[in-house]
Design a protein around this nucleic acid. Structure first.
Lengths: 298, 298
DNA sequence: TGCGCTGATGACCAATCGGTATCGAACCCG
DNA sequence: CGGGTTCGATACCGATTGGTCATCAGCGCA
């Protein structure tokens, strides 16, 4: 049962006149007659009663008209649906992010994406870098918002944001009395660091900064993530270096200060499989870059 | 969106392999690749991610697979449905009959048709000849079971059954004492007749019989139909000539007797439009003739 | 009875489809 | 890391199919 024939049949059934149906279909009358005849012989059923000058549908014809309209309408809807998915206006996108991205631009990016593509279902999940890498490679997620970036042959990474580091101190710390703190002046403080694996880790990053400033923290404490680090700082365990955006979340017992000294900052990046061509992905990248650009301007 | 392409796409989507899909479809691989590419460009959407050796469906592809299966299955069901209608195994048939057919073969014909074609919806209605003629010509009904037949250029009529006439008498009638009654012996009885219009009417038919027997009933009473006639007979108004099958319905106060004399009987016929080619009609005719033939045999 | 309308049919041409041969990229394996 | 293998894409050719134009045949109407 060819689709074209169904369209032709519906036209004839609606016009009840081959000539008019043909002109509605923008074809000549003979091929229309032939296609209908072909359809009838395919089905082995008369669909149109031509015994009079005014043609009429048989019972089979009436039922087919109903079914054909239904099918054609479904195909039409499907066409539009597919097209919207193909343009990234519908469907779903799975995004994972490091916990520390929660305070910075990411919420704005999400908000912007949602309002630009309200019919795209966003599946968000928090993961650390290692989990992100695994998940994005295994296609469990489409985009990883990582810090600083995921490095893999299969992946592409593009920078989203560069932000400076900032010092997190207990709000009872005597260090708060000074206006500016030189990093090297803190060499005897206890530093809250981060897991060493996988290399290169954010812990290495911090230690390198210290090295640049000419010292190695004598006392080190490990925390799983920034949240834990800040908690440790708040109870007076020590000091920590965190991305500036983390300071946006006020926390009792913690104060933030800029410091003097080597500050290479830290980067947020968008990571995805090289072979992932889905439009939603590119739309998300675009929206994210736009949000960052707009946020930096004013 | 060509239907063939949908079938091809479903095959590829299910096999996730062009070669296997092609052999399943019994075509070569190149045309399959081309048809899929064509489908994609028609829709303006990538449906299959070919970036790896193991191909995979895109989001749009997944949705299309679902929709395409649905549509193809609907078309398949429609195909079967239409075919059944075309063979007369499904659909509906509108039959009208004269009231006097209620007692004879008609119930058996209906029963036989229902059991042979249980999915055909039978619409039955009682009509007199004039109504039947109008209705069948205007296509409000498909078959008219008439007595004796409908005569019209547009119609075809085929005999269903020939049955003798029988005498209906009051069960208190002294005529019952004789074994056989000669019709001409009843010339002074009151005859219950039937409407004279439209000509030739059943009244004319009865009067002709009397004429053949050499008399004209002196006393005549009119009844709309056989039921009324029998009622009149039961209350002693007079006697009536009715088709033998009418006597199958026992009625208090009425007795039936064969008579001696001219008995041309009366016919039941099946009438339908010449241009009505619907299979249900022919199936009905066949079943009706079969029932009559079988009933006559034993 | 002839004319007009309508759908069917036949001849011919163009577009589409499927087949074969071949290519090129990715993957596998030693 | 290089050669063979696998798999989808491309190029080209013949066959099928769909379209146009011209014409025919049946029915209704004057």
């Amino acid at each position: 049962m060819d689709l074209r024939r169904l369209v032709y049949f519906v036209a004839v059934a609606e016009e009840l006149h081959f000539g008019r149906a043909a002109s509605r279909l923008a074809i000549a009358q003979p091929p229309l007659s032939r296609q209908i005849a072909q359809l009838e012989s395919d089905l082995g059923v008369m669909l149109i009663d031509r015994s009079r000058s005014q043609i009429r549908l048989t019972q089979a014809g009436n039922v087919l008209l109903e079914r054909a309209r239904d099918v054609l309408e479904r195909l039409d809807r499907t066409h539009r649906e597919i097209k919207r998915i193909g343009e990234g206006f519908s469907g779903h996108l799975r995004v994972a992010f490091v916990g520390s991205a929660t305070y910075g631009v990411l919420p704005n990016v999400i908000k912007a994406f949602r309002s630009a593509y309200p019919d795209v279902e966003l599946a968000l999940s928090a993961m650390n870098n290692a989990e992100q890498k695994r998940a994005v490679i295994q296609r469990e997620i489409d985009i990883a918002v990582a810090r600083p970036s995921l490095d893999d042959e299969e992946l592409k990474s593009e920078p989203l944001l560069q932000e400076p580091l900032i010092l997190a101190l207990s709000d009872t710390s005597p260090l708060l009395e000074r206006q500016v703190t030189r990093l090297s002046a803190l060499k005897s403080e206890t530093f809250v660091l981060y897991p060493r694996k996988p290399r290169p880790s954010f812990a290495d990053h911090i230690l390198n900064i210290c090295l640049e400033e000419g010292f190695i923290p004598k006392s080190q404490v490990l925390a799983q993530d920034y949240q834990t680090a800040i908690s440790l700082v708040s109870v007076g365990v020590g000091i920590a270096l965190v991305p500036k955006s983390v300071s946006q979340a006020e926390r009792p017992g913690v104060a933030y200060r800029a410091y003097e000294g080597h500050n290479p900052g830290t980067a947020l990046s968008l990571n995805y499989r090289r072979d992932n061509r889905m439009p939603h992905l590119f739309n998300f990248l675009k929206v994210a870059q736009d949000v960052v650009r707009r946020q930096r301007k004013p």
